[in-house]
C-alpha cells in the first residue's frame, strides 16, 4: 500500500469514527407540527436520594425555558392551584390552557464524596408532550457532572445545594444544546429560524 493510500484510509477511518461518535440530531417533525407557545412543567418525579430534589430543580426550570422563547406557567402558583382545587396532573394542562406539558424525572441529584474530590451529579430525563393530542414532541436524557477538589481536610458542602447550583447550567444545556434541545419558542428572536 502506498503512503498516499494509507493516509486516505486513515483519514476515512477518522472521519467515520468522528461521525459515529456524535449523537444523531433529534427528529423535530412532531415538534414543528405542534410547535407549542406555552409549557406547563409538572413537578419532577424524584428517583434520586435527595429529599428536596424536586422543588430544587423546579426552581431552576423556568429561566432556561423562558429564555428559549416559551411562556412557562408559574410553577409555584400552579402547584398551589392544583393542590387547592384537587386538580390531577393529567387534567392540569386542560384547566390551565397549556399547549404542552413537560415531564421530568430526576435520576441523580446530589454529591458523592470520593477520595480527593466530590462529584456533584445531575442526571435527568424529560419528555415534552402536546397537551391536546398527547403526541410526544421531544425527549432527552442528559447528565452533567461537576468535580470539586476537596484538598487536604476539605469539607464537603451541602449536597443538595451543590446539585441545585449545577441544575441551572444543566438545564441550559439540556434544553439549549443544538440538535438535541428544544427548538426556539415564539418569544425568541430566532423563533422559526431553527435549522
Amino acid at each position: 500500500m502506498s503512503a498516499r493510500a494509507l493516509v486516505a484510509v486513515t483519514a476515512c477511518a477518522l472521519a467515520l469514527s468522528t461521525l459515529a461518535g456524535c449523537a444523531k440530531p433529534y427528529d423535530y417533525t412532531n415538534f414543528r407540527q405542534h410547535h407549542p407557545r406555552s409549557i406547563l412543567v409538572l413537578l419532577p418525579k424524584n428517583e434520586s436520594n435527595t429529599a428536596d430534589a424536586a422543588w430544587s430543580y423546579q426552581s431552576t426550570v423556568t429561566r432556561p425555558l423562558a429564555e428559549r422563547g416559551y411562556y412557562v406557567f408559574p410553577v409555584a402558583v400552579v402547584d398551589r392551584l392544583m393542590k387547592d382545587d384537587g386538580v390531577s396532573p393529567s387534567k392540569a394542562a386542560e384547566i390551565l390552557g397549556a399547549d404542552s406539558v413537560l415531564y421530568v424525572t430526576l435520576e441523580e441529584y446530589g454529591t458523592k464524596q470520593q477520595v480527593l474530590n466530590a462529584a456533584t451529579l445531575v442526571k435527568l430525563r424529560g419528555q415534552l408532550v402536546d397537551a391536546r393530542s398527547g403526541v410526544l414532541l421531544w425527549e432527552r436524557r442528559f447528565a452533567i457532572q461537576h468535580n470539586s477538589n476537596l484538598g487536604s481536610g476539605g469539607i464537603l458542602g451541602d449536597s443538595t445545594e451543590a446539585a441545585h447550583n449545577l441544575a441551572g447550567p444543566a438545564n441550559v444545556r439540556f434544553f439549549g444544546d443544538s440538535d438535541q434541545g428544544l427548538l426556539y419558542g415564539p418569544y425568541h428572536p430566532r423563533y422559526g429560524k431553527d435549522e
Binding site: W55, S59, E67, G69, A76, H188
Partner: peptide
Amino acid sequence: PTLYSWGHYEAQIYSSSV
C-alpha cells in the same frame, strides 16, 4: 443579552418551597 430581568423570582420559588 437575556430576554427578561429575572430578579428574585426563581430564588423565591426555591426558598418558599425548600
